[in-house]
Write a protein that binds this DNA or RNA. Structure first.
Length: 960
DNA sequence: GGGGACGATC
């Protein structure tokens, strides 16, 4: 056994010194400590102490040293390869060394070089020569006849009566003239004005009737998949046609395309963006409508930036921006002060009330007097100054307003709004208001906007537990993206007479879900926002005040069928402090995918391009994202896209996950890893119905089997779903396990898309994810976990020690990442429920700070995989002769010389292999030298697998 | 011990 050469216990991390210091300093400090081993610590305690310290200083010194040691321990580990493995792998590597290297596959080389050497501008000029849409007289004639037939259709004529009543119809000629005489036009109008369904039809019909339909091809982008479909269906219906005639849609993995010319295609913004990669001039397209530009999602902002450049090369291309009626000058200004045509909406008037009115009406005065301290004691003291500060702020902000309205409201109302707790979400007040409306106001559904799951859950409980509640008189729905109600039709159905429908929702009901019979809206004034902090490099989820734009949108939800009422649960004074608009998404997010996509468009100076967008992201975020892309080898040192980066950019997926499925192709474990990738890039298939949270968590643990992996748990779910579907049993399987059939089906489709693309790029021989040829290693659990970690790298966390609380891991304890210090398993991660781990290392994809820094999805990782697939400044030995390997710039592994050599050689050779495969894509031939290398890697991973044998496994990571 | 909402050619 190797323990004869390097006895693990004596290589305990405690004898080595400061990790983030220079190596020299480390060595000197270690020497000062006399190189004592763990066992010798009890002996000469004073020997490492500098002379001249007295009294308290001695205590301070030891305390400091204990802290240093603890920090080192957190980041330091131990790895040793067994001698027989070393011999075997060294032999394999020496054979591999003699193998020849590969060269560019020629057609890929040309493509790659054209992307690196041409600019966006040049590329457009080249494409212009190829593209020229000719008018087709015969087609025009045919379409004109069809158009006449449509006009004669009774159904069409009947629909036209309704269409002509839409407000946008009053501006029809003005709009058509503006589009005819301008390249860019902005049309702004509020919900219900008909711009989305009508304006593209006005344009199409003007071409049809003038016999030039072959020159008209309209694309209209939508931010959401669902709206692309429903709008297309509606427009086809209005024209008394089926989808696929003059109207169609295209979203990811699903489309009904209309006729090639003389047609309207509703698509998601993402589809247009992807198309631009190979078709930057939008060949054959005559009109681009960008709808809902006011929502300011990343894709729309980027497309606007690109269109601004494209239009000068395509003078015949018309761009029509469509927006809600706020903030329109921003878009008009962005496009050289383009014409803005404003259209009135058709919503019914909505009366607004504010907190002070609600208190008066409900007689609610029951706000908690004390400042509630939910935080632990220590935090209270730490924030003491801050707390009182914000209290003073509140007082000085509310006092003048309270004085100005004191004659209009009862004294208890004025006292109420002066209480800072009146600004917190108050379930009692919400419940009182809901029953007040229910028993005193005319019929109509009540829609409550709350920030998130917790508040929805509390209010739901409060309502249904109330003495005023009865199941016969109320129908209460909770609406959240993770709840099944969001996918069901029942929430749209009108309740029987005398039954009050109450919908408690997140902002999913602001844009994505529209419920027509809502008459009363209750706006809590709060919503949740993800944000990205460039300094801490952390994504956060914060509860924030809504903006005036949100308030307007929420209010509008009450006026769809009749005049409505909106109750804002904040004062008019608070409204005065609210922002006009939400922060555009591009300022709140990381930019890896955006940057890689721009590189594909041959936009090399990404930072310069981003500076020309409507909102300019922080340069430090751009730089952080570029740095990660370099670390993934997607960009080279000069920030040019690499062959690997090009493959990653072509996949519709985050670059890290793209790398994961590329590795899965090389290592032949495609089915489980594409499941992991689909799950990470789309959404979790589990529903979380109210009150079933624990049940769902238990089911997740059940599906995880013994993998210690949320990712492989998801893969297991897909495998079992497929099996149940084969048996015709999928409905009950999904019902019993709180799974969404539609999400699972989409995940399956996405897997197919990944394998299609991998095959197209020649990394696979079969495009069936389940083909045995793609899955020789799919049952090698340790390999699967390694591939996951290789993709997710450098997202690595380490468990320091496990605390058990009520027979479960306490998820708040003792997990660290080098960048953030202490983090936690999110309670929904199956690893927050495990009681023992064989390895200390975990890979994760999503990290988000809310009440703590949570890792949402985690896989326990064999540290050998990290060392082979990770990066770092290499290895060496300190002055005590202790060998080490670095992982990244912080994790450090003690080892011996031969182990270090073998591991680093594998790392180097694997990097080479990946680059080689990127320039000459192809499956790994089992007879080739590449297979030998992959075999050697698998050998090392397998030999490091936890075997229950304490001699080496304990120091590599066993923590229980 | 807890999850605002979206999205990805041919």
């Amino acid at each position: 056994m190797e323990s004869n050469n390097d006895e693990p216990r004596r290589l305990d991390g405690r004898t080595v010194s400061g990790l983030q210091q220079a190596l020299r300093e480390q060595a000197i400090r270690a020497m000062n400590r006399g190189g004592r081993s763990h066992h010798g610590r009890g002996g000469g305690r004073h020997r490492g102490r500098p002379p001249g310290l007295r009294g308290r200083e001695i205590g301070m010194f030891y305390r400091q040293r204990a802290m240093e040691r603890e920090q080192q321990e957190e980041l330091e580990s131990f790895v040793l390869l067994q001698p027989e493995i070393i011999v075997k792998v060294q032999k394999m590597l020496s054979e591999y060394d003699s193998a020849s290297t590969s060269t560019f596959r020629s057609e890929f080389e040309n493509y790659f070089k054209s992307i690196r050497s041409t600019s966006f501008e040049q590329n457009m000029k080249e494409k212009l020569l190829e593209s020229c849409v000719e008018q087709d007289d015969r087609l025009d004639e045919k379409m004109m006849i069809e158009y006449d037939e449509m006009m004669d259709n009774l159904k069409f004529q009947e629909n036209m009566i309704t269409r002509e009543k839409l407000p946008v119809n009053t501006k029809k000629e003005e709009i058509l003239n503006a589009i005819a005489s301008n390249q860019v036009v902005l049309i702004s109008g509020d919900t219900g004005c008909g711009k989305t369904t009508q304006v593209p039809q006005y344009v199409l019909d003007s071409y049809l009737s003038s016999g030039k339909a072959s020159l008209c091809k309209i694309f209209c982008t939508q931010p959401r998949r669902i709206s692309a479909i429903t709008v297309a269906e509606r427009v086809a219906w209005e024209r008394a046609q089926h989808l696929g005639e003059s109207v169609g849609y295209q979203i990811r993995l699903q489309s009904v395309l209309p006729h090639e010319r003389g047609s309207i295609t509703y698509c998601t913004t993402g589809i247009l963006l992807k198309r631009l990669e190979s078709d930057p001039l939008l060949n054959g397209i005559s009109h681009i409508f960008l709808d809902e530009v006011h929502e300011r999602d990343v894709n729309t902002d980027v497309v606007m930036g690109l269109l601004k450049e494209i239009i000068s090369h395509r003078p015949d291309l018309k761009v029509i921006l469509m927006s809600a009626t706020f903030n329109t000058s921003t878009f008009s200004a962005y496009f050289n002060n383009c014409t803005n045509i404003e259209v009135q909406g058709t919503l019914f008037p909505v009366t607004e009330f504010y907190l002070e009115d609600v208190l008066e009406e409900t007689k609610f005065a029951n706000f908690p007097e004390e400042v509630q301290r939910k935080r632990p004691k220590w935090e209270k003291y730490r924030n003491k100054y801050k707390q009182s500060d914000s209290l003073d702020d509140y007082t000085s902000f509310i006092e003048p307003y309270a004085r100005s309205v004191q004659d209009k409201y009862s004294k208890f109302v004025i006292e109420g709004i002066k209480n800072p707790n009146s600004e917190k979400i108050n379930v009692d007040l919400l419940t009182a208001l809901i029953f007040h409306i229910s028993f005193n106001k005319p019929a109509g559904a009540i829609l409550v906007f709350l920030p998130g799951y917790e508040a929805i859950s509390k209010l739901h409980t409060s309502i249904t537990n109330s003495k005023f509640y009865s199941a016969e008189k109320f129908k209460v729905y909770a609406l959240h993206s993770m709840m099944p109600t969001a996918d069901q039709k029942s929430v749209f159905s009108r309740p029987p007479e005398n039954v009050r429908k109450v919908i408690i929702s997140t902002n999913i009901a602001e844009t994505s879900i529209t419920i027509d019979d809502v008459v009363y809206v209750i706006n809590s004034g709060k919503s949740k926002m993800t944000n990205y902090n460039p300094e801490t490099k952390l994504q956060t989820l914060e509860e924030v005040w809504t903006t005036l734009a949100n308030n307007k949108q929420r209010r509008g939800r009450a006026g769809r069928v009749q005049p409505g009422i909106c109750y804002h649960l904040f004062t008019r004074a608070r409204e005065f402090t609210m922002d006009a608009l939400p922060t555009p998404e591009i300022l709140r997010t990381r930019l890896e995918s955006v940057i890689l996509n721009l590189k594909m468009l041959r936009i090399h100076d990404v930072a310069q391009f981003l500076r020309k967008l409507v909102s300019v992201p922080d340069d430090s975020v751009v730089q952080t994202s570029i740095a990660l892309l370099k670390r993934l080898n997607a960009l080279d040192e000069r920030e040019f896209i690499t062959p690997l980066g090009l493959h990653l950019a072509r996949l519709p997926i985050d670059p890290q996950i793209g790398k994961m499925i590329l590795l899965a192709a090389l290592f032949k474990c495609v089915d489980p890893i594409t499941s992991v990738a689909a799950n990470l890039s789309f959404k979790d298939p589990f529903y979380r119905p109210l009150g079933k949270e624990k049940l769902v968590d238990d089911i997740r643990v059940k599906f995880s089997k013994d993998t210690k992996s949320d990712h492989l748990m998801a893969a297991n779910v897909i495998t079992e779903y497929r099996e149940e579907k084969r048996k015709g049993n999928e409905r009950s399987f999904c019902y019993d396990n709180f799974l969404s059939i539609s999400t699972l089906n989409q995940l399956e489709k996405m897997k197919g898309q990944f394998t299609d693309l991998l095959m197209e790029a020649r990394f696979l021989e079969s495009s069936d994810p389940t083909d045995p040829k793609n899955n020789y290693n799919s049952s090698n659990l340790d390999l699967l976990r390694s591939i996951i970690s290789a993709g997710l790298y450098p997202n690595v966390a380490k468990v320091r020690r496990v605390k058990i609380c009520k027979r479960r891991v306490d998820p708040r304890m003792d997990i660290i990442t080098p960048e953030d210090g202490r983090v936690s398993f999110h309670p929904s991660s199956i690893n927050s429920k495990q009681t023992g781990f064989e390895y200390k290392f975990f890979a994760y994809f999503m990290k988000q700070k809310s009440t703590a820094i949570y890792l949402f999805d985690t896989t326990m990782i064999n540290p050998r995989a990290l060392l082979i697939f990770g990066d770092g400044e290499g290895a060496g030995f300190d002055q005590l002769g202790n060998h080490f390997i670095l992982l990244g710039d912080s994790f450090r592994f003690r080892t011996n010389r031969v182990s270090a050599e073998v591991i680093l050689k594998l790392r180097e050779k694997f990097d080479e292999l990946l680059q080689k495969k990127a320039i000459n894509p192809g499956p790994v031939d089992p007879e080739s030298e590449d297979a030998l290398l992959l075999g050697a890697i698998t050998e090392v991973l397998n030999a490091g697998r936890f075997s229950g044998h304490p001699d080496y496994s304990s120091d590599e990571g066993n923590v229980m």
